[in-house]
Amino acid sequence: MTKTLFRTTIAILAASVATTAMAQVSPEDQIKFRQAGYSFMSWNMGKIKANLDRDYNHDQVVGAANAIAAIANSGMGALYGPGTERDVGNVRTFVKPEFFQNMEDVGTLARNFNAAANNLAAVAANGDQRAVSQAFGDVGAACKACHDKYRAD
């Protein structure tokens, strides 16, 4: 059931991103959408951390890990189109211009993040809290690797 829900979520998100890309989303909306995705992942990382710090609830961890993996695999790279390297209107971006000049490195960081997110979802499904803690740390390290290089303060 969990795998079916996960696959369905990924399919819906992928279709949404593909539709978004084809609809010529404005740079302002691209920034808003990607920030929403990262915020949602952050919220789910917080849920996992809370479970690792106190009473561990397997179902909550699995749900949060699946949500993170779904967003990570949703094709968010399509939301880094031309014009999104700077603030647009009243929407502020936190991405450094260097991000757009180093796409090979960005691609490597994105693949590493996706692999870590997918691993977290797989490990969470197995229920081993210690393994979840390690996989959770790997996701955090993958986030940090990109933030350290390409996120402005």
Rank of each mutant, 00 (worst) to 15 (best):
I48D: 01
Y80Q: 02
D59A: 15
A11M: 10
A121K: 09
D87R: 04
F136W: 09
Q24K: 15
T20E: 08
F6H: 10
A21H: 12
M76F: 15
I68N: 01
A70Y: 03
A23Q: 11
V17A: 03
T4C: 02
G137Y: 06
D55A: 05
A11I: 01
G89M: 09
V91P: 05
R54H: 12
T108P: 00
S26G: 09
R34L: 03
Y38R: 05
K149E: 12
Q24S: 14
Q134D: 09
E104F: 00
Y150M: 04
P97A: 06
Q134C: 00
Y80K: 05
A69G: 01
N73D: 14
D153F: 15
Y56H: 00
A117N: 01
S42I: 06
V132Q: 01
A72I: 10
L109P: 03
L79W: 05
T93M: 08
A135T: 09
R7T: 10
N51K: 04
S42N: 14
M103T: 07
A15I: 08
A15D: 11
E28C: 05
D148F: 09
T9E: 12
S39T: 13
A78S: 12
G63Q: 11
T8Y: 14
A121V: 10
N51M: 06
A11Q: 13
L13P: 01
C143P: 08
T2V: 12
N90H: 12
D29E: 13
G81E: 05
D105I: 11
F99Y: 13
F6R: 12
A145S: 15
R130M: 02
N44A: 06
S42W: 06
E85I: 00
G107S: 01
M103P: 00
I12H: 10
Y80W: 14
T9M: 13
V62K: 08
E98L: 12
A131H: 04
H147E: 06
P97L: 06
F99E: 01
V123R: 03
N119G: 06
N44G: 04
G127E: 04
Q30A: 07
A121Q: 06
A15C: 10
V17H: 10
A131G: 03
G63D: 10
W43P: 00
K47E: 12
V91R: 04
N44P: 08
R54N: 13
Y150F: 11
